[in-house]
Design a binder for these strands. Structure first.
Length: 609
RNA sequence: GCGCCCUUAGCUCAUCUGGAUAGAGCAACUGCCUUCUAAGCAGUAGGUAAUAAGUUCGAGUCUUAUAGGGCGUACCA
């Protein structure tokens, strides 16, 4: 809404400048820039006049004054007051009128307020999560999942038709490692028999394999005795290769559909998938469709052969198929091994084509960590060379690493933060907080509420940072409920809900009193009205940039402003009945927008906390 | 070596397409609960925006160089 007002003013001012410049005989007129003044009392829209100083041969401040005078003599159909602040021509918006139209719009659109049609008619597929079936989810996955869910919601809010897809990495030598370890050390135990969650159970065998490999290496080194560092390195490699040979031969059997191996693979896969499904449920992660690498890995070879026929790929002397990446400034890349088996790239080529056949998307977004930028650059280029015109609409939503305060997460050093554990710990802390404040009765279901607080804390913490940047996850800080956090935002929603409930009880006393936006004269009230009016624009910006952090900043600013406002001003006990209605309705709009924004960043709404 | 990215307060992050006095939170210190939930509100202190040069009326933002850090550069995923 604010955006529309800004655009109309921009048009009016620009027209006037052009007219003025023509009179002065200027030929080259720079396009008008629009901004926001640093302080509210300076106005709401700022037009800097610097750019016209040269062509008009006047000081920017003089130009601003001149344009203001000329516009004041015109009969304009836009609301607001013109102010001159040095070299800037500013517009102060009439918030009373804005509040009235805002209120009409918010009450008619409700939970749809904020949505827009900027991506209407677009079919967007978004891939995220993509877990291995040999270990449970960890913190790195959580940033991925939060981002995927949030960006999907943002695109929907911008009018797109969105399909969320997951690709389960359930094949390969790494999967065979946990299978092999289970065969060797498992003694037939199952998640049921040990009472473990399936993914954690399987993950334990993956770790067990790593331990076995380490033992093999140590043993070999011990037997070798005192040798040179070069020699040691050789022994190390040889021992690892020997250990690896067993899972490797299992992979071969898997590819040959060996019934015994397939049965074990199915069994262990299901254990993991059941565990993952539970984690996803707890974290509110959902997909419209699951793809499995065990199905899609075969599709890629056809694409490679097709490229060979087309002459865009070539067969190297050693028999492998490659592509020359010189046109995009890179080296060569192998697309198919010399023994004819497929690699990661082969498979991703096939998966992309398969997906477009499944559901002809206009664009496909891959939510994958920044370490794979090279891979996607090559993948997109290959698809383009294969002649798929949708290749231009593929996008790698690259996000930075999640590090811990003392460095990178390392599985070898056991510093990996497990997703289930983290959520559990956070829930427990939230629960303690509820009990400490004796809020059990008001809250109702304490466990459910604790979980929602934990989820909000986590999602908000992860989404606050611009996706492309690396971030540091501080477990200590994420469980704190003070400051710029998810729980703080939830608290604001709960407080307003509580007020609204109180108002409902006395509603009849206010029957027949109309909302009057002109009564909202406090600076905080004006600021809130403007923030609320800017929400659709925020949603559009966040969607265009694939950046949930934009929503996070907005949420925090709105919450903070409202918090300050209702601390200083009575709402239910305002001086007049008219003012009570105006403030209650303003609060109600804040609540609506908070809820709508929460939904975009995975912060659950709580009526009470 | 080469390629991509990053460097803003003690710590974690903002700063819209270059625009007015670079903002928050945490941590520190100080006030405020007979008043709509103190998971709150207010205040104090904290900055040569890594460094140097350049473009511009104007640079945290654009260009170049230097330093420091990350990631990649597999017939792994």
């Amino acid at each position: 809404m604010l955006e529309e007002i800004r655009n109309s003013w921009k048009e009016v001012v620009e027209k006037e400048i052009v007219a003025f410049a023509r009179e002065k005989g200027a030929t080259e007129i720079a396009p008008l820039q629009a901004g926001t003044p640093p302080k509210a009392e300076m106005g709401d829209i700022a037009f800097p006049m610097f750019a016209y100083a040269k062509s008009l041969r006047m000081a920017p401040a003089q130009i601003a004054e001149e344009i203001r005078k000329r516009l004041e003599n015109r009969d304009l159909d836009v609301d607001g007051t013109l102010l001159v602040a040095g070299p800037y021509l500013n517009v102060k918006i009439e918030t009373g009128l804005l509040a009235n139209s805002l209120r009409r719009r918010v009450s008619s659109e409700g939970d749809r307020y904020g949505r827009n049609d900027s991506l209407k008619g677009k079919k967007v597929m978004i891939e995220f999560s993509c877990p291995n079936t040999n270990k449970p989810l960890h913190l790195g996955h959580m940033r991925n999942d939060s981002l995927g869910m949030s960006v999907a919601a943002l695109l929907k809010a911008n009018g797109a038709e969105v399909k969320r897809v997951n690709l389960i990495n359930n094949r390969g030598v790494h999967i065979c490692k946990s299978m092999w370890a289970y065969m060797k050390f498992g003694n037939g135990e199952t998640p049921e028999s040990t009472g473990e969650k399936g993914d954690h159970f399987v993950g334990r065998y993956y770790v067990r394999y790593a331990q076995y490999e380490k033992e093999c290496i140590e043993k070999a080194l011990e037997e070798a005795g005192d040798v040179s560092p070069e020699e040691r390195e050789k022994i190390r490699e040889e021992a690892a290769r020997r250990a690896n040979a067993e899972p490797q031969s299992m992979l071969l059997k898997w590819e040959q559909n060996d019934p015994e191996v397939m049965a074990l693979w199915n069994r262990m896969n299901n254990w993991t998938l059941e565990g993952l499904a539970e984690s996803y449920r707890n974290m509110g992660i959902e997909f419209e469709k699951y793809y499995y690498e065990s199905d899609t890995y075969k599709f890629g070879k056809d694409q490679v052969y097709k490229g060979l026929d087309m002459g865009v790929f070539y067969r190297a002397e050693d028999g492998s198929v490659q592509i020359d990446l010189a046109p995009i400034g890179l080296d060569r890349k192998v697309l198919l091994r010399k023994d004819g088996t497929s690699i990661y790239m082969t498979q991703d080529l096939g998966t992309a084509v398969n997906r477009h056949e499944d559901w002809p998307f206009d664009s496909l977004i891959y939510v994958v960590a920044s370490e794979q930028q090279y891979h996607f650059k090559v993948l997109f280029y290959c698809l383009k060379m294969l002649g798929y015109k949708w290749a231009d609409e593929l996008y790698h939503l690259s996000y930075g690493m999640v590090n811990l305060p003392n460095g990178r997460m390392k599985s070898r050093e056991g510093t990996v933060v497990d997703a289930d554990d983290l959520l559990e710990n956070l829930s427990q802390l939230a629960k303690e907080e509820i009990i400490a404040k004796e809020r059990q009765d008001q809250v109702g279901n304490v466990d459910e509420t604790s979980r929602k607080i934990a989820l909000g804390a986590l999602n908000y913490y992860l989404l606050q940072v611009t996706p492309s940047k690396d971030m540091i996850f501080n477990p200590q800080e994420s469980i704190s409920f003070n400051g710029n956090t998810g729980p703080y935002l939830q608290y604001m929603g709960a407080r307003i809900s509580s007020m609204m409930a109180k108002f409902e009880a006395v509603k009849s006393e206010y029957e027949g009193i109309e909302f009057d936006g002109s009564l909202l004269v406090e600076e905080d009230e004006k600021a809130i009205v403007k923030l609320l009016a800017s929400f659709p624009e925020i949603v559009r910006k966040a969607g265009a940039a694939y950046d949930p952090a934009v929503i996070c900043s907005f949420l925090y600013e709105l919450s903070k402003t409202f918090s300050h406002y209702y601390h200083d001003n009575q709402i239910l006990r305002a001086d007049t009945r008219e003012l009570v209605v105006a403030r209650v309705e303003l609060s109600r709009m804040v609540l609506t927008v908070l809820k709508n924004a929460y939904a975009l960043v995975g912060v659950p709404f709580l009526a009470s906390m």
